[in-house]
Amino acid sequence: MELSMNQRERTVPTSRWLPWHAIVVFAFLYLPIVTLIVYSFNGSGVGGFPPRDLTLNWYRQLFADDAIWTSVLNSLLVAFAAMAISLAFGIPAALALDRANFPGKALFRRLVLLPLILPGIITGLSLLMLFQAGNVKLSLLTIVLGHGTALISVATTEVFAGLQKLDRTQEEASLDLGANYWQTFWRVTLPNLRLSIIGAALLIFTLSMDEIAVSFFLIGRDNTLPLEIWGRLRRGITPEINAISTIIFIFSLAAIVTWYRLRAKAEPELIL
C-alpha cells in the first residue's frame, strides 16, 4: 500500500491541494457525528459553544430510561426477525435466479429489486392498506413483516452476486466424490456463500435498525428506537439522545470493522 502510493506520486503529478480537499470531504462527512458525540458528554446540554464541563450524566440518565431500552429491544427484535425472513426467502430466490430457467426470469430479476428502489413511504402505505384490508392489528409483527419483505431484495442481490462468483466445478467435484445434491449444497455451496450471507445479514440488520418510513406506517403500540427518538425530538433535543446515538455509532463501527476483517481474511486480494 505504502509502496504503491509512493510509486503513484512519482508517476502521476498530483495537486498539493488534494490532501486539503480530502480533509474537507472528511470534515463534511464526520463533523456532524463528532458534534453529536461531543455533546453527549456536555454538562450544559445541547446548547452552548464550546462544550463545557464534561459529564457522564446523560449516559446515567439514559441507562435509567426504560422507554428507550424497551425501544432498543424492540428494534433488535425486529431487525433479527427481518433478517431471518429476508434471508429465508432471499437465498432460495438467488439460487433460482442463478440456476433455474423459468419463464419470466428476467422480469423476476428486476421485480426483486423493486422494494429497494421504491420510496419507503410507498412501501409503508401499501403494506398498511394491505394489513387493514386483511384486518391485521398493527404491532411489532407487522413491522417485522414490512421490513422482512422490503429487505428480501438485499438478501437476493447479495447472495446472487456471491453465486455468480462461485466456481461451479467445486460443486461437480463434490458430486463426483459421492455427495448428493443436498450434501453438496450444505458442504460446498453454502460455505462458499458464507461471506455474501454474512454481508447481507449485516446490511439487512443495519437497514432495519434505522428504518423509519415503513415503520411509521406499520407501528402499533410498541416503538422501535428510531421512532422513539423521532418522537422525543418533537419535544426538543436532549443530550440523552446524543448518548444513545453515540452508542449506536460505536456498535455500527464495530460491525463494519468485523465485516472488513472477515472479508480481508477470506479474500485478501480484494482489500486495498
Binding site: 466456481d167 466445478t169 467445486q170 461437480e172 467435484a173 463434490s174 458430486l175 463426483d176 466424490l177 459421492g178 455427495a179 448428493n180 460446498v188 460455505p191
Partner: peptide, 17 residues
Amino acid sequence: PPYQRRVNTVFQHYALF
C-alpha cells in the same frame, strides 16, 4: 447420478474446496 458412480475425477483446475 454422478455421486453413485464408482468413478472419480481429477479436474483441470483441480477444483479443491
